[in-house]
Structures are given as C-alpha cells and as structure tokens.
Amino acid sequence: MSALISQLINLFASVILLLAFAMLSQRRIINLIHLYTWQGLAVVGSTTVVAYVTHQPHLYYSAALTLLLKVLLIPYFLHRLINRLNVRWDIETLFNIPTLMIIGIILVIFAFNVALPISRFSDTIAHGTLGIALACILLSFLMMITRAKAVPQVIGFLSMENALFLAATSATYGMPMVVELGIALDVLVGILISGVFMFQIREQFDSLDIRHLEKLKED
C-alpha cells in the first residue's frame, strides 16, 4: 500500500515537473494560464494524497486553500486580466526552444544533486520529491528570465510559488497554518498589484513588452 502511495505522490510530482517544462516552451499566453491551472491541480492532488496517508488535518485545509486560490481564484483573475488587456491570443516569440530545454535539463540534474544529501534526512513519505520541487523552482526562474512580456513573467512567478508549496509538503508536511495563510495573502495581494501594474505599464508604453523597461542602466 505504502509503495503504491509513494508512487502516486511521485507521479503527481513528475506531472508538476513536466508542466514546468511545458510552461517553459509555451508561447501562447492563454495556454500558459491553462498549464498553470493544471499545475495547481496536480499540487492539490499530491497534497491530498499526503494528507490522506498521514492523517494530518491541516494538510486537508492547505489542499483546500490551494484549490480555491491556485485552481479557481488566480486563474479566473488571470483570464479576466488578459481579456481586459486584450492579450488573450498573444503569441510571444521565443528563441531557441531546444537550447532552453537543454538548460532546463541541466538545471534538473543540478537540483537533484543538491537535494539528494538533504532529502534522505526527511522522514516524510514524499521526501523523494524535494529534488523535483527544487528543479521546478529553478525552471520557473529560467522561465522568468527568458520572457519579455509581463503576463508570462508573473505566471513564472506564480509557478515558482507552486514549486515552493510542493517543497514544503515534501520536506515537512507543509508549513504551520499561520505561515501558510500569510503566504497565501501575500500571493493574492501580489497578483492584484501586478494586475494594477500591467494597466499602468500599458497606459504608459502601449504594450506589455518588458523590453521597454530597460532604460534604467548605468551609463
């Protein structure tokens, strides 16, 4: 039974990693939001399984909170945002997707090597997924660096938050409830502020291209 459960947890974690790769190479904004929603759902799935096995009630709460926030509320907000900004069908030009994938793979190997000596100290059932979580953090980071538009950058940021949540479940069965609520509040306020920003940026530059935001340099 426990072997099956831990395989299930690993399966969810690998789905999250695959989705992180998919986001890295996805050019359509609308599809990025879909991928983000699916990633949130996979996080909910993995958390629920861990909660079921360990009978930790607070993990059920945080799974419910994640479902509400990352599968329903934030994607709804993002859909509204891209509708009002009229960028629903925007396609971004991404250079050299194969190179990006190879850098991603190197990051994954690096993350596994960093996490390996640590994860064996963890007693949790999901300790094997710590490496995957760290890999997802680095992949989201890579995605944010390579994007030139505001909305994909924010989605990269949100995906990093998903990965951090996965790391918390796999290392320690989740952070204390107070902290988790605080983090959720920060994410919610952060996404609202980024929405305000996007309107300000577009009003000023008539586009959401971050390349306009590279004037402040040392000369």
């Binding site: 944010m144 940021f157 952060g190 920003f197 940026i201 000023q204 971050i210 306009h212 935001l213 402040l216």
Partner: peptide
C-alpha cells in the same frame, strides 16, 4: 513616469524572486 514604472516592476519581480 516610464522610469518609475520600470523601477517598480524590477523591484516587484527581483525582490519577489
């Protein structure tokens, strides 16, 4: 201003990361 928007966006993203 364009410069202040750029500064704020950088602040938001870099400090967030």
């Amino acid at each position: 201003t364009p410069a202040s928007l750029e500064a704020a966006w950088k602040y938001f993203i870099l400090c967030g990361v």
